Amino acid sequence: ELVLALYDYQEKSPREVTMKKGDILTLLNSTNKDWWKVEVNDRQGFVPASYVKKLD
Rank of each mutant, 00 (worst) to 15 (best):
N29R: 06
L25W: 03
L6Y: 04
A49H: 04
S50D: 11
V52H: 01
F46Q: 03
Y9S: 01
D23E: 13
E16S: 06
K20E: 06
E11K: 14
S13M: 08
A49F: 02
D42V: 06
A5S: 05
D34S: 10
W36F: 08
T31K: 10
K33Q: 14
L27F: 03
T31F: 09
L27V: 07
Y9P: 01
S30Q: 10
V38M: 02
K21W: 03
E1S: 13
G22P: 00
W36S: 03
K12I: 07
E1I: 15
N41Y: 14
S13T: 12
I24H: 05
N32I: 05
S50R: 14
D23I: 04
L4W: 07
Y7Q: 12
F46V: 07
D42K: 11
Y9W: 10
I24P: 02
D8T: 05
K21N: 05
L25Y: 10
A5D: 00
D23F: 05
V17G: 02
K12S: 11
K20G: 05
V17D: 00
Y9G: 01
V52E: 02
L55Y: 08
D23H: 05
G22S: 03
K21T: 07
K33V: 10
V52W: 01
V52P: 02
D42G: 15
W36H: 03
S50Q: 12
Q10A: 13
A5W: 00
N32S: 10
V52A: 03
R43A: 06
L28I: 15
G22Q: 02
V40S: 15
A49G: 05
P48G: 01
R15T: 11
S50I: 09
D42Q: 12
L25G: 14
A49C: 07
Q10N: 14
L28Q: 04
R43L: 07
V52Q: 01
D34R: 11
T18Q: 04
W35N: 02
W36Y: 07
V17L: 14
T18I: 03
K53Q: 14
T31V: 10
T31N: 12
S50V: 09
D34N: 13
L4M: 13
Y9T: 01
D56C: 14
A5G: 04
E1M: 14
A5V: 10
K33S: 12
K21M: 08
E16P: 04
M19C: 06
I24W: 06
K33R: 13
P14G: 10
R15N: 13
T18N: 07
V17K: 01
F46N: 05
V52M: 06
V40M: 15
V40C: 11
M19P: 00
K33I: 11
N41M: 13
K20M: 09
K20N: 09
Q44S: 12
R43V: 08
K21S: 08
T18L: 03
N29A: 09
V38N: 00
N41L: 12
A49M: 04
L25C: 11
W35Y: 06
D23K: 03
P48K: 04
S50N: 14
K54S: 08
L6D: 02
I24Y: 07
N41D: 14
L55W: 07
T26G: 10
F46G: 02
R43H: 08
L55E: 04
T18G: 08
S30V: 07
Y51R: 08
Q10M: 13
A49T: 05
L27K: 02
P48M: 03
V47I: 09
